[in-house]
Design a protein around this nucleic acid. Structure first.
Length: 104
DNA sequence: CTCTTGACGCACA
DNA sequence: GTGTGCGCCAAGA
């Protein structure tokens, strides 16, 4: 069931350690669906468990995201990442080379 | 049941 | 190196 895929995404997100970020493509690929990057984003869009699903750790390949479509605003996102020790640039982008979680 | 849109990613020009 | 287009799967209308 496709919905199960969503659960899989949430599980992966919860598996991400604090202070690290992951990209849609990376998650999708990790789940065995490199073409489902969009659905991964959709999974966050529905976000059935706010507070449990740290969406702020979810970034696109650019290390950022939509300019003003976040759960609480890009600025809030930025603050959360900074609170976790993730260096966020003025463009709301993260240093992928340093903070992108490569899994295990 | 069909068409459009979508928090993306990659290939090609 | 930059810009544009297309593809993938799913959910909403």
């Amino acid at each position: 069931m496709a919905g199960d895929f969503f659960e899989r995404v949430y599980a992966y997100l919860q598996k991400v350690p604090r202070g690290k970020v992951v990209t849609y493509g990376q998650i999708a690929r990790a789940l065995g669906a490199p073409r489902m990057a969009r659905q991964v984003g959709y999974a966050l869009h529905v976000n059935p468990k706010p507070g449990v699903i740290p969406c702020h750790r979810w970034v696109n390949r650019c290390g950022g995201r939509a300019p003003a479509v976040a759960f609480g605003g890009t600025d809030a996102q930025k603050q959360l990442l900074l609170a976790e020790g993730v260096e966020v640039r003025a463009d709301n982008t993260v240093d992928m080379e340093k903070y992108q979680w490569r899994g295990e």
